Simulated scan of single mutants.
Amino acid sequence: MELWFMGTNAGMPIAERNVTSIVLRMPQNRGTFWLFDCGEGTQHQLLRTPFKLSKLEKLFVTHLHGDHIFGLPGLLSSRSSLGVTAEMELYGPPGIRDFVENAFRISDSHLGYPLRIYEIGEGEAYRDEDFIVEAAALDHRIECFGYRITERPRTGALRTDWLLEIGVPAGPLFGLLKSGQDVALEDGRIIRSEEAVGSSLHGRVITVLGDTKPCGNAVALAKDADMLVHEATFLADLAEKAGEYGHSTSIQAAETARKAGAKRLLITHFSSRYKQEDLAELESEARSAFPNTEAATELKPYSIPRGNVDDNRQ
């Protein structure tokens, strides 16, 4: 799994940075990607990546400010123009349905695929056999949500080489061992499933927060996260301004990561007052409170590795 930032600027695009949108590349066996927010220019940025709109499975919107949604009607329309017929799901705060449907109605646009729109509240937004997505309200000027994506744990790999070496024939016995059952061989030996299967793999946790001041729900959503994406609109010297506009400073983002026990922090949503060379200062300031911090770079993959369930997650 990987995160890719299609935009890291706040409010409006500048020459060096686009506005907010984040790709979550799903595991290889799934072959799809999810999108979090869709600011203006998102589909242009996607053209510079390996991601194809035909593989866009779900889109989650944090809130209805323009720098997070103005790219949405165009992207959805382009997905249809490309001939994609696979269903897509859109999740977001109340009002997202009106925004999309009115944009299509006024522009006389039509989709050639089913679009399922879900207006969310706090709690579980989505689940399947592999992932659970939870949402909680943040502290911004309008209704805004953060998302916690939890991957379910997976059993470890079957130790096939070892099993063949000790005389276990490939076939149905392998399946039984993989499913957690012990098996008896013809010579009377008992092979324990716990010996035949490698260490289980913990489910990764990715937290993507929308715009927010420091708040309890941000910490709760980010608890023990493998990766936390948090806005850092301003440096600490503008903390009063950040609070007035419902935003966070780089230090405040780092303090949220520290309180939550997150493993890694990516800061984003930088004010237009900061040029690209200024982001090192935002990053350095955040690292003073949470060392494993990086200022997100657009169109760069950030890998989210999987570990064993008994790994130290501090």
Rank of each mutant, 00 (worst) to 15 (best):
I120A: 07
Y91L: 13
S199T: 12
V61L: 06
D128W: 10
K275C: 12
S272T: 11
V19P: 06
D128N: 11
M6P: 05
D128A: 06
R17P: 03
R97T: 15
L24D: 04
D139A: 14
I96C: 07
L158Y: 07
L282R: 02
D182M: 10
D182C: 10
P73K: 03
S200Q: 06
I69F: 09
F270D: 02
G243A: 09
L238Y: 14
F145H: 00
P93Y: 11
F51P: 00
K300E: 07
L138Q: 01
D98H: 14
L111H: 03
R189Y: 11
Y118K: 05
G31H: 01
E143V: 02
L279S: 06
L201D: 07
V100H: 01
Q276N: 09
P153Y: 01
L59M: 12
E122F: 00
P291E: 10
F60Q: 08
C144I: 00
S179W: 04
G11A: 11
N29V: 14
C144N: 10
K259E: 12
V309W: 05
L173N: 04
F33P: 05
R264K: 13
S284P: 00
G71V: 03
S77W: 15
C144F: 01
E255I: 11
H269P: 00
D237Y: 08
I251T: 04
L59D: 03
F99L: 15
G167H: 05
R48I: 04
F270M: 07
D310Y: 12
T160A: 12
T249W: 03
N217I: 10
T150F: 03
G246Q: 09
K223M: 11
I69E: 02
I132F: 08
I117L: 04
T256G: 00
R154N: 04
P214D: 11
I142Q: 03
Y147P: 00
E244I: 13
E2N: 14
H44L: 13
M12C: 07
